Amino acid sequence: MSKIFFLFTFIFFNLVTAFGQSLEKKINLTLDKKAQIDLELSKTDENVKKLELLLREKRKILLQRARALSYLKSFKWGGLLSLDDPSKFDLNLKILAKLNQYDFNLFKDYKSAIRNLAQGRIDLEKYTAELQAILTDLKKQEQLLAADEERRKKEFTRANKKSLLTYKGKMPIPTEGQVKLSFGSHRDQENEYAFLVRGLLIETKPEANIVSVGPGKVIFRDAIPYWGETLIIQHDDNYYSIYAGLQMNKNLSDSVQINDIIAVTKGKEFYFELRHFDNPINPKGWLKEVL
């Protein structure tokens, strides 16, 4: 009987973990999609605003031309059509042709601007609807993940196993400072592209203390490109916390407890991530408070 119970417990934990992982992966894929839609929506919105401004300018010019044409109705055309000087007549014809072509192009451009604006508004509605659908889907996924985490908490407690979930909402902020970039999608205004932040980029001061957000063991201690000196702590239940941009106090295989000072910041930027297996997790809701 006991063997069956432990086998069931083992299978249950693996199934639940797999379910949680799939939800976390799905959430991250949804966030990727949201980042792209955010970018398209932002670009389309800017384009619509530019087209609206362009249309107002073209309308203003057309009204000016309409007033000018109204004035020409009272113009004495006899002199313009005089045959006394054929060279002047040819010149006048060319002037009239250019005026007509200019007015024709004005109306043509105005019509094109109206068409482009209408299409821009259609695209704007489409991207807005897509974004709303993504946000609704994301909310459902997050609710499922929260329910799954709650189930896992209870099962780990019953089986007398540990999980970093125990500390969810109680974790200390790893260092003092202000969040420069938060978890989620962002847009580079200058280069017109969307990018995702998988953790927190914190603006801090040099040599500020960095603390562990939970008990665990140091499994990585090395420099990585761009971020410099980086520390990774493995926690129970396949959770990991990542700390980058620091000067380290801990060595490989060192055990740490929650709130232990593990390093100090090296410069003015510090990066922090939480992961479950290889899936990034939004630190919001895990830390006591978000900076």
Rank of each mutant, 00 (worst) to 15 (best):
L7R: 09
L7F: 01
L7P: 00
F8V: 12
F8H: 11
F13E: 10
T17R: 13
F19Q: 05
K26Y: 01
T30M: 04
K43P: 01
T44Y: 03
T44K: 01
V48E: 05
K50H: 03
R59Q: 13
I61R: 14
Q64T: 06
K73Q: 14
K76I: 00
G78E: 14
L83F: 13
Y102V: 13
L106A: 12
K108R: 15
I114N: 01
R115Q: 11
R115W: 00
R121N: 12
L135A: 12
K140Y: 04
E142S: 07
Q143T: 07
D148F: 00
E149F: 07
E150Q: 06
K153Y: 14
K154T: 11
T157V: 12
T157W: 06
K162D: 01
S163R: 09
T175E: 03
E176R: 07
G177Y: 03
G184I: 08
R187I: 15
L196C: 08
V197N: 14
G199C: 05
L200R: 02
L201W: 04
I202S: 02
I210Q: 00
D222F: 03
A223N: 07
Y226W: 00
G228P: 00
E229G: 01
L231F: 10
D237E: 05
D237I: 07
N238V: 00
S241T: 15
V256S: 08
N259K: 07
I262R: 05
K268N: 14
E273W: 04
R275E: 02
I281S: 01
I281V: 03
N282W: 09
W286K: 04
K288R: 14
